[in-house]
């Protein structure tokens, strides 16, 4: 399927070249190697003239979670922002099913959900209104209602309270509920457990686990030791050692 798509796009892209057949042939052979769903190829990130990491390669496949570790300022957030396509790497490429994410644009973003330092919720809107917007911006998931998503993060009964009246932990839970309402396969999570209580952290871990078991993927940073079940495959990268 992937190889087919590449061949079609490859042919149209090089249609004007005289060596048409040769190029198409070459593309097919390179993509015949099974491509990872998500792949980072020798990424380099420079911030304020300091090289945070270079030649960083990894892949994420369905059911796997990438866990980034490292000191403060080691580039975890920068890497996540590169992965989701907000920030450009200094060199290297980020590929989704073998295609560059910057070329895919919205076609890549419909598969991702990003939870950054900032919650991205509007303080003047209610949790339900915030979720409705999040759902409209992405590709809506059919098998869950907005109320069910709120219930899963423990915000049942707070649908119509203005978001500004929620506590910091509850606002974080609302941000996590946003992940549940779209059909995103890759969750990109930057310190998702900030300001959650111990029970909340466990609850959210079960949600992330469920997502991975459904064939989802995750890339996350956290200072908290994650208590996923054995069968979840974690790929750990320590950026301080890069």
């Amino acid at each position: 399927m992937v190889a087919d798509l590449t061949r079609v796009s490859g042919r149209s892209r090089f249609r004007d070249k005289t060596e048409d057949n040769y190029i198409v042939h070459r593309i097919v052979t390179t993509t015949a190697v099974p491509t990872a769903t998500f792949e980072a190829r020798s990424l380099e990130c420079i911030r304020d003239d300091r090289v945070l990491f270079d030649d960083l390669c990894f892949t994420i496949n369905p059911g796997e979670a990438l866990v980034l570790e490292g000191r403060n300022g080691s580039g975890k957030t920068s890497l996540l922002r590169i992965i989701c396509g907000i920030r450009l790497p200094e060199s290297g490429a980020v590929l989704w099913e073998g295609e560059d994410i910057f070329r895919l644009g919205p076609e890549f973003h419909e598969h991702t959900a990003y939870l950054g330092h900032k919650d991205g919720s509007k303080q003047d809107l209610t949790p339900l209104e915030n979720l409705r917007i999040a759902q409209g911006l992405g590709k809506a998931r059919e098998d869950i209602t907005l109320e069910e998503a709120l219930e899963q993060v423990g915000l049942y009964g707070f649908e119509d309270v203005p978001t500004r009246n929620l506590s910091a932990g509850q606002q974080r839970r609302l941000a996590i509920a946003r992940l549940l309402v779209t059909d995103a396969k890759l969750w990109i999570l930057d310190e998702p457990f900030t300001s959650l209580d111990r029970k909340g952290i466990e609850q959210m871990e079960r949600l992330f686990e469920g997502h991975l078991q459904r064939g989802g993927m995750a890339a996350m940073t956290t200072h908290h030791r994650i208590g996923f079940k054995e069968e979840v495959k974690l790929v750990r990268i320590n950026l301080s050692e890069q």
Binding site: I86, A113, Y114, G116, K118, K122, L137, K139
Partner: peptide, 12 residues
Amino acid sequence: DGSLEQFMLSAH
């Protein structure tokens, strides 16, 4: 509040 990041990463 980070909504702008979410717009950048929307499917539209």
